[in-house]
Design a protein around this nucleic acid. Structure first.
Lengths: 126, 126
DNA sequence: TCTTGACTTGGAGCTAACTATAAGTGATAT
DNA sequence: ATATCACTTATAGTTAGCTCCAAGTCAAGA
């Protein structure tokens, strides 16, 4: 698949795809005789993984490190596992922060709803 | 309370507190005769709110807009409610992304665990 | 042949959210 | 008196993660 096909498929600009390659996130992407990228199955899987991680805010630096370990082969399995566990911890913390903030928003929205509907008149701001 | 006391209490640097004031996130902070900030109860509540929202990634621009509406008084209740509902939507989406990513990490970590313990030998990378 | 269009590269530019620095004031400790 | 310290301002610099641009190559269509 060409860069523009991949771009549509994964909703990433060609610029972003080239950028990911330049910084070592995407590796070993096949090219034709003119040097044009021809993404294969494995590239697609990698892109999907990156997209998932990035959507949750996992840092690019961390993903680069993970890819590096991947390419070093099976000796790095434990290191990779530790890396992913670390990221999972971070996401659990983030999940909690977001949960708490949603709760707070729910409360505030309810207060505003009550004011708006005239149910509550005694409101103090903030 | 002085800026350094607030800084410790909320784990924000004095620089950040001044920055928040400059951009209009913190307003009406009392000063003494020498122009030194003397944060009051209301300032503290505002800071706490901002910290909560920021911890979930709510953008500063949005918070500035919210503060602006707050200061315009009770006529903006509906607008404020709509703003908070919009942010809640965003956080629910983010929550889902993080949840899905954690699931994926759980799966990958399990695979690595199996490989590491010798339970699984047939593994294909990525 | 000429132009169009998709691709290539290297490198500069952008945005959000701080973060640090320089230059100065004013109150307290020695 | 002098030095230290916390504060003040305005402004420049930093980081992450893209995003855009200039200059060029190559193949296919009018």
């Amino acid at each position: 698949m060409t860069i523009s096909e991949i771009s549509k498929k994964y909703d990433l600009t060609p610029n972003t795809l080239r950028y990911y390659e330049k910084i070592g996130l995407l590796t070993k992407i096949p090219r034709n005789k003119n040097g044009i990228r021809n993404y294969d199955e494995q590239s697609c899987k990698r892109i999907e993984f990156i997209k998932c991680m990035r959507s949750a805010g996992v840092e690019i630096e961390v993903l680069i490190q993970y890819v590096k370990l991947l390419e070093e082969g099976k000796d790095t399995v434990n290191e990779r596992k530790a890396l992913l566990e670390g990221q999972r911890e971070k996401l659990l913390k983030k999940q909690k922060d977001i949960h708490d903030t949603i709760e707070r928003l729910n409360y505030k929205i309810n207060v505003y709803e009550d004011i708006s509907s005239g149910k509550r008149k005694d409101f103090t701001e903030e």
